[in-house]
Computed example of a mutant assay.
Amino acid sequence: MTRFLHDQFAKDYLEKLLQPYGEVKPSKKVSSEIREIDLLFAPTPNATQLETLGLLGRIAAIPAIIEPFRNAAPAEEICDCLLKLFQVRGELRREAKRNNASTRNSAIPKLWVLTPTASRDLLMGFGATPAHDWIDGVYFTPKTYRMAIVVIHQLPLTQETLWLRMLGRGRVQRQAINELEALPVTHPFRQATLELLYTLRQNLAAQTISEPEDRELIMRLAPLYQQDRELAKQEGELKGRVEERRQVVESLLKVRFGTLDAELATIIDSILTLPPEEFTPLLLQLSRQDLIARFGSDQ
C-alpha cells in the first residue's frame, strides 16, 4: 500500500513540475490490455525556462514517457515499459498513415526509467551505458530502443539534479528535502512540492503499518509542515489586519467626503503605509485636495 502512495506522489509531483511547459498525460492507457503509462509528456513549441528544472528539464525538452519506480526497477518491468513505448510508437505511425503523413522521429517519445538503484547486470542487460555529455547516473540504451535509465542514487548532489533526487529513497530523498527547504520562498516550485510532500506525509501517517523509511520521512516532514502552517496562519492574520485597516480608511473617506470616487480610491494604498495612529488624524483634518496632494504623489 505504501508503495502505491509513493507512486502516486511521483506521478502528481512530475505532473506539477512539467505542467507549465507542455501537455502532461498521467496514467495514459495504451492497447486493448490494461496498460498505463505513468506520465506522457509533450513540450510546448519553444518551451522556455525548462532549465529551472535542471536535469528533469533537459529530459522534458523532447516528448517523453517517464516511468518512476519507488523500488529498484526489475528487468521484467522495464521490458513492460518498453512495450508501452513501442505501442505508443505504433499509434503515432498509424495516425500518420491515416493522415497521409510521415512520422517524424522527433515526435516519438523517449522512454525515461527513473529508478533509485540499478545493478551493473541490469544495465548491461539492456546495453545501457553512460554518455559523455550527460551527468553521472544517466545511462542510454542503443538508439533503436529510445530508452534511458536514470539511477537516482548515482546522481551528483547538485541543484541540477534536485528535482529528480526528490524521487529517491532514504537519505537521498531527505537530502533533497533539505535542499528544497533552503530554496528561496519565491522559487516557482518550492511551495507546490512541499504541498505534495505534505499530502504524502498525511497519507503515510494514516497507514496502520509503515516501513521504518516511511516513518523517518514522516518525522522529517513534521517540523516543515508545522512551520509552513504557522507561516500561513501569520500571513492570514496579517492580511486580515490590512483588510480591517483598509475598511477603516474607506469608511473615514466616505464620512468626510460623502463618497469614495476613483480619485480617492487611488490614494488608499499610500495611506495604508502609515500606522492607524498617524493616518486617522490626517483623514479627519486634511481637505480632499490636501490628501490627494500628499498621498497621490506616491503613486
Rank of each mutant, 00 (worst) to 15 (best):
M1P: 06
T2V: 07
A10L: 03
K16N: 14
Q19K: 13
G22P: 08
V24I: 01
D38Q: 06
L39V: 11
P45M: 01
P45N: 00
P45A: 01
L50P: 00
L53A: 01
L53W: 00
L55I: 11
L56D: 00
A61Q: 06
P63D: 04
P63C: 01
E67I: 05
P68Y: 05
R70A: 09
N71C: 01
A72L: 10
A73P: 02
A73D: 01
P74F: 03
E77D: 13
D80G: 10
C81H: 13
L82N: 07
L82R: 09
L83E: 14
K84Q: 05
F86H: 13
Q87F: 05
Q87L: 06
V88D: 06
G90D: 14
E91H: 14
R93S: 12
R94S: 13
A96V: 00
K97C: 09
R98K: 10
N105Q: 12
N105I: 12
A107G: 06
P116I: 06
T117H: 08
S119L: 01
S119F: 02
D121E: 15
L122E: 01
M124H: 09
M124K: 14
G127P: 00
A128S: 09
T129W: 05
P130M: 03
P130Q: 12
D133W: 13
I135F: 08
T141I: 05
T141C: 15
K143A: 15
Y145L: 08
R146F: 03
M147Q: 08
A148P: 09
I149S: 07
I149Q: 02
H153L: 03
H153K: 01
P156H: 11
P156S: 12
L157K: 13
T158G: 11
E160Q: 10
M166I: 06
R169D: 04
R171K: 08
Q173M: 13
I177C: 06
E179F: 05
E179Y: 10
V185T: 13
H187R: 11
P188K: 05
A192R: 12
T193D: 09
L194D: 05
L194V: 02
L197R: 04
L197K: 02
T199S: 14
L200Y: 00
A206D: 02
S210R: 09
S210H: 11
E211S: 15
P212S: 09
P212W: 12
D214N: 05
D214F: 00
E216S: 15
R220C: 08
L221C: 07
Y225K: 15
R229T: 14
L231D: 15
K233N: 15
G236T: 00
G236R: 04
E243C: 08
R246F: 03
V248M: 11
V249W: 01
S251F: 13
S251E: 12
L260T: 06
L260D: 07
D261V: 02
D261N: 10
A262Y: 03
A262R: 10
L264T: 07
I268H: 08
P281E: 11
L283K: 07
L284E: 12
S287G: 02
S287A: 03
R288W: 10
R288N: 10
Q289P: 13
D290N: 10
D290E: 12
F295C: 02
F295Y: 08
Q299G: 10
